[in-house]
Nucleic acid binder design. Structure first.
Lengths: 208, 208
DNA sequence: ACCTGAACACCGTTCAAGT
DNA sequence: ACCTGAACACCGTTCAAGT
């Protein structure tokens, strides 16, 4: 069974238990109404126990944002490893995966991009993983350029266009701006494909 | 002078004074650290006085978000009234104005799109003004289609592509994701123009 | 090492009371 | 009508104290 050498106080891994409780709480009530004390209560410890594992509330929020970026990066790495012989397909799949992940985790996405993490925390590991996610888009665009499917323009610019588009769509959906227009999962996928194609028309190599 | 018929308690217009103080406070400390009590203190009234003008904290935040959407809509209406004979120019100006407004008011933008306003408040006037801002993009795209400069595809899809792109770029900048890449106002404008051109390539009519 | 309880300064919100 | 002060239940954070 679990390797509990000694009769531990409350948890084998309180840190992980706190993160789990925090993600659940954020998913339930959004990143704005979220309290350290409530998380501690749900994890079954006193309200000061979290300070053994996190410097402060912001550090716990950063840890959750990190997990969000990690998930995004992982899913994009998968895409980047697949469809390598079909740059258009790879581009479209990346766009779909980005929006999918963001829309499936709206509250965590808002936590990641909504100004909840103070700028001081946006360095080190968090910045690295966030850049790793973007890096996958960059490589996918680069693949398309090498295959002469995409414009031979600054790769950064093309990547940023792709990132902005999917990120913007996700943000508009998650903030409720598209309530009358894009609601079901199917509608999300459809509009993502439509926008992906429109953007691809602008990014593609025209000499062919 | 000001029409002070009677010796009013503290303000001719406490409601407006509270909104002003709130915008200042949000701009200083972000939408996350923002308290009604601090706003009241800055306006020079007791911490319960705001309840005469706003049902609760969320109502004050909604009022500020409304002002943010109104500003965006107003600036886009200006663009929509200008350059009517040059659809490409009009499209590019609209993209620039959107990003400009968002990046000049990062904290208010995060308030508008970062999950600070509960879904219950996202109806009525707030939804109307928000839709009015989007409507301007829609009309601008429509102009381009009528002039046979843009694709004869569902106007909603083209508009949503434009909205997503500028909104995504703004959000990435404001959340600090592009810190190494896009920082100065000049860089923001340059990258906005670059992305605008790339998207335009995808939206433009190809039969001409 | 890991956790607790009391304490502090802060919140949002309500309500009886004052002019 | 407009504002106040006390009160309540909640915060984040610190710190001495317990095992």
């Amino acid at each position: 069974m679990a390797k509990k050498t000694k009769t531990s106080y409350h948890h084998g891994d309180l840190r992980q238990a706190l993160i789990n409780a925090a993600i659940t709480l954020i998913s339930e009530k959004g990143p704005n109404s979220f309290s350290l004390r409530e998380v501690a209560k749900r994890a079954g410890v006193s309200h000061t126990a979290p300070y053994r594992h996190f410097k402060d509330k912001d550090s716990l929020l950063s840890a959750i944002a990190l997990i969000g970026f990690q998930l995004l990066a992982d899913r994009l790495i998968e895409v980047q490893a697949q469809y390598t012989s079909d740059p258009l397909r790879q581009f479209m799949e990346a766009e779909k995966v980005y929006v999918e992940v963001a829309v499936e985790n709206p509250e965590v996405s808002q936590l990641m991009f909504g100004g909840y993490i103070p700028q001081e925390h946006c360095v080190g590991e968090l910045a690295e993983v966030s850049q790793s996610a973007f890096q996958q888009l960059f490589v996918i665009i680069e693949n398309g350029q090498k295959a002469n499917v995409l414009k031979q323009q600054d790769t950064m610019e093309l990547s940023l266009a792709a990132w902005s588009m999917v990120h913007g769509l996700s943000s508009l959906i998650n903030s409720g701006q598209l309530l009358g227009h894009v609601e079901t999962q199917q509608e999300v996928e459809n509009i993502t494909i439509k926008l992906g194609r429109l953007l691809f028309e602008g990014l593609k190599e025209t000499s062919s």
